[in-house]
Simulated assay, not measured.
Amino acid sequence: MDEIYERLEPIFRELFDDDDLIVTPQHTAKDVEGWDSMMNVQLMLSIERAFKVHFSASQIASLGSIGELAALIQRMLDQAAPGS
């Protein structure tokens, strides 16, 4: 899971133009300045490209925190792994 956060952090930093931004499992959109619905679309697209996954609209709508996002990414990567 640490690897996922290590890969997420640069995406968040670049998108929100904040080199000091630290992502934690507890963070929500309310905790990150500028994270509105339009930015959420860009964020999800950037994450999909970086991790080579695809989120459904219902999966995105169900996310409440970065921790839940990271867990979803981990599940998707595990399912895509050979032999799973």
Rank of each mutant, 00 (worst) to 15 (best):
Ile73Met: 09
Gly64Val: 11
Lys52Cys: 07
Lys30Thr: 06
Glu6Cys: 01
Glu48Gln: 14
Glu48Leu: 04
Gln74Phe: 13
Gly64Tyr: 14
Arg75Gly: 01
Leu15Ala: 01
Ser65Ala: 08
Phe55Ala: 00
Leu43Phe: 15
Lys30Cys: 02
Asn40Cys: 12
Met1Asp: 12
Ala50Val: 12
Ala61Gln: 10
Glu33Tyr: 09
Glu48Val: 04
Thr28Cys: 07
Leu72Lys: 07
Arg49His: 11
Ile66Arg: 00
Trp35Gly: 00
Asp31Leu: 03
Asp18Asn: 15
Ile22Asp: 10
Glu9Arg: 11
Gly83Phe: 01
Phe51Leu: 13
Ile22Lys: 08
Phe55Asp: 06
Leu69Ser: 02
Ser84Ile: 06
Leu63Ile: 14
Ala29Trp: 04
Asp17Trp: 10
Phe51Cys: 11
Thr28Leu: 04
Asp31Val: 04
Thr28Phe: 09
Ser58Tyr: 12
His27Asn: 13
Met38Lys: 04
Gly34Gln: 01
Phe51Glu: 09
Pro25Trp: 04
Ala71Met: 10
Met76Trp: 08
Leu72Tyr: 05
Ala29Ile: 01
Ala80Phe: 07
Pro25Asp: 12
Lys30Tyr: 09
Ile66Asn: 02
Arg75Ile: 11
Asp31Ile: 05
Val32Arg: 01
Asn40Ala: 15
Asp18Ile: 02
Leu21Arg: 11
Asp17Met: 12
Arg7Gln: 14
Val23Gly: 00
Ile11Tyr: 08
Ala71Lys: 11
Leu72Ile: 05
Glu6His: 06
Thr24Asp: 06
Asp36Gly: 10
Asp36Ile: 10
Leu72Phe: 04
Ala70Met: 08
Met44His: 04
Lys52Ser: 12
Leu45Ile: 15
Leu63Asn: 04
Ala71His: 12
Gly34Tyr: 05
Ala70His: 04
Leu21Cys: 11
Pro25Leu: 00
Gln42Val: 08
Asp19Met: 03
Gln26Gly: 08
Ser37Cys: 09
Phe55Thr: 05
Ser62Asn: 05
Ser37Gln: 09
Ile60Arg: 00
Ala70Lys: 09
Ala81Leu: 10
Thr24Ala: 02
Ala70Gln: 08
Ala71Ile: 04
Met44Ala: 05
Glu68Ser: 07
Leu45Ser: 13
Asp18His: 03
Glu33His: 05
Ile73His: 06
Leu45Met: 15
Val32Ile: 15
Ile11Ser: 02
Asp78Thr: 10
Val32Asp: 00
Gly83Met: 02
Met39Ser: 14
Asp18Pro: 03
Glu33Lys: 05
Gly34Glu: 03
Phe51Val: 13
Gly83Asn: 02
Asp78Ile: 08
Ala80Cys: 01
Asp20Trp: 01
Met1Gln: 11
Ser56Tyr: 07
Trp35Asp: 00
Trp35Val: 01
Leu63Thr: 05
Ser46Lys: 12
Asn40Met: 14
Met1Pro: 09
Asp19His: 04
Gly64Thr: 14
Asp19Asn: 06
Leu45Glu: 13
Ser84Tyr: 15
Ser58Glu: 15
Leu77Asn: 01
Ala61Cys: 02
Pro82Tyr: 11
Asp17Cys: 06
Gln79Val: 11
Met39His: 11
Lys30Glu: 14
Ala57Asn: 14
Arg49Ser: 13
